[in-house]
Design a protein around this nucleic acid. Structure first.
Lengths: 94, 94
DNA sequence: CCTTGATATAAGCATATTCGAATATATTTC
DNA sequence: GAAATATATTCGAATATGCTTATATCAAGG
């Protein structure tokens, strides 16, 4: 199987607790940065940094709504599918 | 959705070109370390280190066969499913 | 036991990530 | 246009990753 470089970028983007949490929240529905600050134990700057990484990986995108940016998962089948797989994954053999 | 810490460990383990390549190869069938060296452009020590990371993440395990260790993916539904999702993922919106 | 083949671990260095603090930019409102 | 709100960027220090080289372990054969 050919390993696409983009896959690693996506996986790396998701491989962080805060970022995984962000995309899980965004799968529930579009959110602006301020509302994410209420949900996550991270500073505004930090959330913005993580969003930048997710944006670079093409995992999320946003629509501008006045001064606000409404973020959403731009490949929900992929990201949602990944989270579902993880959620349903049986515990590893001891 | 609850974010399990283990998920991040699995994603981090897979978020590396060599390691992703290793699991892709192992999904095709069990392999010992020596035969992986023929497939990958990496040193023995390096491959062994990556295998250690995959082991810690409970992504792979091995059976000992004499001096050889035969590695295999120990959660093939999960890992195979992830790779399939990535492979089938449409290109992100430009 | 000594050697050889297979694999793992340790040490060291270069590079990358992460996060906080401060600052910048853009938009709305008054 | 000044102040307030929303978000992004920059910088620096701490920490983590990745890779190389060298060394250790461990099993099998002689």
């Amino acid at each position: 199987m050919v390993i696409e470089k983009d896959w690693v970028v996506v996986l790396k983007a998701l491989a962080h607790p805060t970022r995984l949490r962000i995309v899980a929240e965004l799968l529930q529905g579009t959110k602006c940065v301020t509302s994410m600050q209420d949900l996550l134990p991270a500073s505004q700057a930090n959330i913005s940094q993580h969003l930048g990484i997710l944006r670079n990986a093409r995992v999320v995108d946003f629509t501008q709504d006045g001064a606000q940016r409404c973020y959403y998962v731009c490949r929900p089948e992929l990201v949602g599918g990944l989270l579902e797989l993880l959620r349903d994954a049986p515990a590893p053999p001891a």
